[in-house]
Design a protein around this nucleic acid. Sequence first.
DNA 1: ATATGGATTGCCT
DNA 2: GGCAATCCATATT
Length: 191
Amino acid sequence: MEGKQREGYGEDFFDGSAEEVARELLGSLLVHGETSGLIVETEAYGGEEDPGSHASGGPTPRNETMYGPPGRAYVYVCYGIHDMFNVVTGPEGEAGAVLVRALEPVSGIGEMRGRRGVEDLERLASGPGKLTEALGITGELDGEPVTEGRLRIEPDEEFSEERVGRSPRIGLGVDCDRRLRYFVEGSRWVS
DNA sequence: ATATGGATTGCCT
DNA sequence: GGCAATCCATATT
């Protein structure tokens, strides 16, 4: 055998609820070109019943990707400056997504440093806007599958329950009770 | 047609 | 710790 390529997840992996997928994505590898990082922090966003979700007001041109098939990238601009990377979850027709908030840099670190203009490893991808800049992810990738192609999510590490921390989601003016943020406890790479 | 406010970051005091 | 930067979808007139 040669050219052994790591298997990515299938579309069915992302077909569950945003909460399930958010938990399961911890320890997966996010890959774009030569650059990649281990996912150490995520947040779950639901559909119309979730006041913190972009889909809380029903379908609009902006959030239409969230209603599409699972396993696609949902990328949008925040504060007019930063791109945010999410993966669509749940069945087509139902809105749901998981926001990836932080990565542990794995490969292409020189390229990431160049894009970020930062040397410090801990500041390379420890935040939702930082990791998209580090990996070169932009709105152009909105709707792209992460199961195949240039942008992929692959299985890598597994974190046991006691290593997984939870907290309310960050930066929302609503829903400060539910703990829909998942992160690797004690990781240096969390935002 | 115009006004508002973010799923943030980095630089300032 | 506080706040400006900066774009566009969405709400309001």
